[in-house]
């Protein structure tokens, strides 16, 4: 039996005067991995920002439900506490805030929301160090300020580490592979796959097929001009890679 975790219905949204999302529909069930592929500038990041509640975007009509609740009325922190995670295309540098402090505040905020006790600091640091090893981020790096002095690949690995520590029910991976060399891509992909447990859902946003060779999706959607123009299985990604986006843009 399928249980929807995310239901987007006829969504329209804009930034300033510019309409970017135009009649977007998508339902993701528990445990499913979806990929959205589309050309640069089609508004893929707008979609992920709207799902996470980033200020500056205006939803003009349509609805988004997360686990049956109205997502659009929630603050970004409420959404995170409910189980949404966004691995960002451009992770932000926060000088003066060490990774461990940042993650500890995040973990405890989410635990508090769930009515769980705060984690003991020593246990927490041990856990982050263990998880860090999986993403080749050593103890020295997780003591440093968030993303400060991190290379592009290290930033992406830190996003994956955060996801592993926060254990969301639904993760959005926005261009998780951009800027990664092949080794780093494998590390990130392995991390993502290790979180794939049949219950957790994911939305992978990308314009290359590359990451999808390592994290194989259940469904692939082609996104152009603010909505989905075609949906299919994992083979659609291969077709896209061969034909390019232009063909699909014409089809609609």
């Amino acid at each position: 039996m399928t249980t929807p975790i995310l239901e987007i219905e006829d969504l329209y949204a804009r930034v300033g005067d510019k309409e970017i999302i135009k009649g977007f529909n998508l339902t993701i069930n528990k445990g499913e991995i979806h990929a959205i592929m589309g050309p640069n500038g089609a508004g893929k990041s707008t979609l992920s920002n709207i799902l996470c509640g980033k200020p500056g975007y205006e939803v003009t009509s349509g609805s988004v439900r997360f686990k049956g609740k109205d997502l659009l009325v929630m603050s970004p922190e409420e959404r995170a506490c409910e189980g949404i995670f966004l691995a960002m295309q451009y992770p932000v540098e926060i000088p003066g805030v060490p990774v461990t402090t940042f993650l500890k505040h995040a973990v405890n905020a989410i635990r508090k929301h769930r009515g769980q006790a705060e984690l003991d600091t020593m246990d927490f640091i041990k856990m982050v160090r263990e998880e860090g090893k999986k993403f080749k981020l050593d103890a020295e790096m997780i003591k440093r300020a968030v993303n400060v002095g991190f290379s592009g690949g290290e930033k992406k690995r830190l996003e994956a580490l955060q996801m592993a520590v926060l254990k969301p029910d639904f993760a959005i991976l926005d261009e998780a592979d951009s800027g990664l060399d092949i080794d780093a891509l494998k590390i990130v992909a392995e991390g993502i796959n290790s979180l794939r447990d049949g219950r957790r859902s994911m939305l992978i946003i990308t314009h290359f097929q590359r990451l999808l060779n390592h994290v194989v999706p259940d469904f692939v959607h082609v996104y152009a001009d603010g909505h989905i123009v075609k949906s299919g299985g994992k083979e659609l990604a291969v077709e896209l890679e061969e034909k390019g986006y232009a063909e699909f843009e014409r089809e609609k």
């Binding site: 996470c52 509640g53 980033k54 200020p55 603050s75 970004p76 922190e77 959404r79 995170a80 506490c81 995670f85 966004l86 960002m88 992770p91 932000v92 926060i94 000088p95 003066g96 805030v97 402090t101 940042f102 993650l103 505040h105 995040a106 973990v107 905020a109 989410i110 929301h113 300020a145 955060q162 926060l166």
Partner: peptide, 23 residues
């Protein structure tokens, strides 16, 4: 952007502001 990044990880706005001011 820093505020949103922290909030997107579950940290309440007030707490995120406090962390950024301390930093």
């Amino acid at each position: 952007d820093k505020l949103f990044y922290m909030r997107s990880r579950g940290i309440k706005e007030e707490e995120a502001r406090r962390l950024l001011i301390d930093a």
